[in-house]
Design a protein around this nucleic acid. Structure first.
Lengths: 226, 226
DNA sequence: CTCCAAGCTATGGTCTGACCACAGGGGGTG
DNA sequence: CACCCCCTGTGGTCAGACCATAGCTTGGAG
């Protein structure tokens, strides 16, 4: 840690590790933090920007409890941003992101099937039902689809995997072709496959769930990746 | 994108996506970028800080080709920083990081075993040999250990998984107890296990390689995680 | 007494300008 | 010809100012 703005980051990190800050805690105002650390406000802001990009704090303007830098737990934000940027630079190929998603998600449904009933699984079922509403708009369907897959992942009980899954989805969201000629047919197929995956998970058939989710994801990207 | 510093990020991202910037390219000087985008230099710096934290650029002072912001491909840096910070905030439990590492690495050795010989595998073998030098210092051994595991992961041929593996290791490095009472015994065991994993991979036995690497990692963290 | 609107205040958002630190390159000097 | 010093371009940091926002307070109208 030589550069001053890293002082801000390590200061916050240390306070978190020491338990002086928790999720929901509010950081001192920028001007106060600058005086405390003996650096300029511009420097403090550089550090806060990084923490914000990592999803560790949420920064609000104005006054009141929502203003200022509040410690958050957006575990996917930083991962997602990093993946997205390196996808743009082609340092990471989209193909590998998709394959990684297949791995993470098949691992997750195996874990979820083995773990048995859970609130996350109930939530997945409810999201699936909501996504089956007639005349649903593509945007809403995709949002529910994302939430469904994330709930399924959460059911495996690993927060790091869940964060990575969310990050992967976020990173390639911009590469997915939203305009589909055969929207009705596509959405019908996705619903059927979702039902099949959820069914395999709830009956505890890990192998079947993994096979189904792999086929589901690979099929989806084959059709929609541009 | 409302905040000005995000303009900087999206500008660089767009230039990357359009192929105007590549890994190794040099960004304009901060003052130039500020004038180009119609924002202040302080704002440009906030954006560059984020890009730097994500491992997308490397910023050097002074003059010459190494000075300024150069597009890099440190795909693990941002992921690692994000994981580390959320570990500090306890939003992510260390346990889940270890389990995720087990998953990623067992997947990797399966892939490596199936893929057959590769430069990455040769590198892993060479690193392992170097780690078997007599009288090696713990710091050097751990460095070679990290490189060995990463080379093994690279052999699976998925850049995203490789980046995640590197990030996971980086994030929990601070939690690993470096001072060991029975150093000689530990290092001996690690070497034996490394040999066994590599042997299973080179002979193409994916299942065996996966089992061995799982036992290796779990055993290591059971002993060294504080 | 109640309610609402205007002003107050704390906070981040942004800009300007300045000066320092660093490193490479070129020109002057021995 | 070789070497050293200074010049120049670059990031690093600071100080101070002003604007934008949003909750809170206060005073007046009803």
């Amino acid at each position: 840690m030589q550069r001053s703005h890293e002082l801000v980051i390590s200061h916050v990190e240390a306070a978190l590790a020491a338990g002086e800050l928790r999720v929901g805690s509010r950081l001192p105002a920028e001007r106060v933090l600058a005086a405390t650390l003996g650096v300029s406000r511009a420097t403090v802001r550089e550090g806060l920007r990084v923490l914000e990009a990592m999803g560790l704090v949420r920064i609000g303007v104005g006054s009141g409890p929502a203003a200022g830098a509040v410690v958050a737990a957006d575990t996917a934000a930083g991962l997602s941003a990093a993946l997205r940027l390196h996808l743009a630079s082609t340092a990471l190929p989209v193909r590998d992101v998709v394959r990684t998603r297949v791995m993470l998600e098949s691992w997750s449904v195996r874990g979820a099937a083995a773990a048995g009933p859970s609130p996350a699984l109930d939530e997945a079922a409810e999201l699936l039902t909501r996504s089956e509403r007639r005349g649903i708009e593509p945007a809403e369907f995709y949002a529910l689809d994302t939430e469904f897959h994330l709930a399924l992942t959460r059911a495996a009980g690993n927060a790091v995997v869940t964060a990575m899954m969310a990050a992967l989805r976020g990173a390639i969201a911009g590469y997915v072709q939203r305009e589909q000629r055969q929207w009705t047919r596509l959405v019908g197929r996705l619903r059927t496959e979702h039902r099949a995956v959820l069914e395999a998970v709830t009956t505890g058939d890990a192998d079947l769930a993994a096979r189904r989710v792999m086929a589901h994801i690979e099929g989806f990207y084959r059709q929609t990746l541009r």
